[in-house]
C-alpha cells in the first residue's frame, strides 16, 4: 500500500484537484484513529480488558473504513470488534429534494448494537446531517450504550450541533469545494483530494 504512496492517482490529472492526503497519510491516520479508539473504549473488567463496542460504517466509503479500523484494532489490541454497515438513505432529511435514491446495504454487526458502544464511521464530516440521520437509523436497530463518531476528514461547516469523537484530519474548506475521498476498496487507491467544483451537485452531507 505504501510502496506507491507518492505516485499520482488517476484523479489528480484534474487540474482543479489538490491532493490533501496520499495513501501513506491515509494509512497512518487510520492507525492513529485505531489507537485512539482502543484508548477510549477499553474498559477494565474482572476478566481483564473488555471492548463492548461495534463499528458501524456508513455506505459507501464508511464501510471499508470501518473494516480497516477493525483490522488495525485487532493488530494493536488483539480484539476483534464486530463490524456492520448502516445505510442512512431512508433517514435523510433531503430525501424529497432530489430524485429517488437507490439504497445501500444495512448489515447488523454480530451481536447487535443494544448495550454496546456504537462507533459510527464515515469518510467526510460536513454539515452533520448524515450523522443525524445515522443516529435515527441506529435507534431503529436497538439501544446502544453510547454512540460515537469517527471520521477520516472533518471539513467544517456544521449545520447541526454534532461533533466527532475521532477525527483523522481537519481540512479547512470553503462550501464551494468538494472533498473527494478515494479508498482502495471502492476506488482502486487511497487518497483525499480537494476539488474546486462550484458546479457539482453531489456534496458530502
Amino acid at each position: 500500500m505504501t510502496s506507491h504512496a507518492r505516485t499520482p492517482v488517476s484523479g489528480s490529472s484534474d487540474p482543479t484537484a489538490a491532493t490533501v492526503l496520499a495513501a501513506a497519510d491515509v494509512a497512518r491516520i487510520v492507525d492513529r484513529m485505531a489507537h485512539q479508539i482502543i484508548e477510549n473504549i477499553a474498559r477494565p473488567t474482572a476478566a481483564g480488558g473488555s471492548f463492548e463496542a461495534v463499528l458501524l460504517g456508513i455506505p459507501t466509503r464508511g464501510v471499508p473504513l470501518a473494516h480497516r479500523l477493525a483490522s488495525r484494532i485487532a493488530v494493536f489490541a488483539d480484539v476483534h470488534l464486530p463490524v456492520g454497515s448502516l445505510d442512512i438513505t431512508l433517514y435523510r432529511d433531503d430525501l424529497r429534494l432530489r430524485g429517488v435514491r437507490p439504497l445501500g446495504e444495512t448489515i447488523e454487526p454480530e451481536g447487535g448494537v443494544t448495550g454496546k458502544t456504537v462507533i459510527l464511521v464515515d469518510d467526510v464530516f460536513y454539515s452533520g446531517r448524515s450523522t443525524r440521520a445515522a443516529l435515527d437509523a441506529v435507534a431503529d436497530l436497538g439501544r446502544p450504550r453510547a454512540v460515537q463518531l469517527a471520521v477520516l476528514v472533518d471539513r467544517g461547516h456544521r449545520e447541526l450541533p454534532i461533533r466527532a469523537d475521532y477525527v483523522g484530519k481537519n481540512i479547512p474548506t470553503s462550501p464551494s469545494q468538494r472533498v473527494r475521498v478515494s479508498l482502495a476498496e471502492t476506488d482502486g487507491s487511497d487518497s483525499v483530494h480537494l476539488v474546486e467544483a462550484a458546479t457539482t451537485e453531489e456534496g458530502e452531507l
Binding site: 431512508l90 430525501l95 424529497r96 429534494l97 432530489r98 430524485g99 429517488v100 435514491r101
Partner: peptide, 10 residues
Amino acid sequence: YRLLSGAADS
C-alpha cells in the same frame, strides 16, 4: 418507495 419518495417534479 420508488414512486413516492424523492422530489415531486422528478
